[in-house]
Amino acid sequence: MAILDIKNLGISFGGLRAVDNFNLSIEKGELYGLIGPNGAGKTTVFNLMTGVYKPSDGIIMLDGENITGKNTVEINKAGIARTFQNIRLFKNLSVLDNVKTGLHNEFAYSTAVGIFRLPGYFKDERLMDEKALSLLKVFDLDGEKDYKASNLPYGKQRKLEMARALATSPKLLLLDEPAAGMNPNETKELMETIKFVRDEFDMTILLIEHDMRLVSGICERLSVLNFGQVLCQGPTGEVLNNPEVIKAYLGD
């Protein structure tokens, strides 16, 4: 059974049909790419999936659960975590605390336990520290754990965002242009990390990316979006050689 099943998803902003009749089905453990020219509606699809926008049409099923119309918090609890195209870290928190914030719902000791330092506090904080550190290690960020997040270089900020999203133990991870602003070396390293995350955590990943080396290097299947509509979808090799796709990217 598909872990994600989207049927006939659509939304309009005023007169603009930003996403229209969008269908997508992803299997568990798949690494799936969503590509398309600027303004095609890719980020809007993520925003619809995570409850930032309410869809005007369609149904979104996650692992058999209908999550259409739920709010962002409920959807995260249901199992979708994401990163953002324009990085959204907790700038003034330390790198470690950014990830620990992602563990908010897993180690849910109460406010009173936190204020009065009851025994649960120390136990949960220790477990959170351990888990957050092990996630930081995956992204090679453990050395910078006490840095303020805003003091990390750009590429590491993107990785930290991934670590934070993973901390919520999602079923599906959405990455919005994870390689944006990275140099070729960093991108290569990122590709390894993404593959590692998929294998290590048995994760299903849907990513938006403009960098075709990354897309062709790690995505197993692709959907191409153009003017809010799916132009074509299928195995990566086939899609990238589709004349219509090439035309959409290069223009007429």
């Binding site: 995570t50 930032v52 709010n71 962002t72 918090v73 995260n76 609890k77 975590a81 994401r82 953002f84 959204r88 870290l89 907790f90 700038k91 003034n92 928190l93 605390d97 620990k100 914030t101 992602g102 908010h104 719902n105 180690f107 849910a108 000791y109 406010t111 336990v113 936190g114 204020i115 506090y121 949960d124 959170m128 934070r164 999203a165 901390a167 919520t168």
Partner: peptide
Amino acid sequence: NSRSGRAIMAIRDNSIAAESIGI
């Protein structure tokens, strides 16, 4: 310096991201 405090500061720094991780 507790879970709730981190959540509050997360909201301060970026409320959209805070929601996206279930706060």
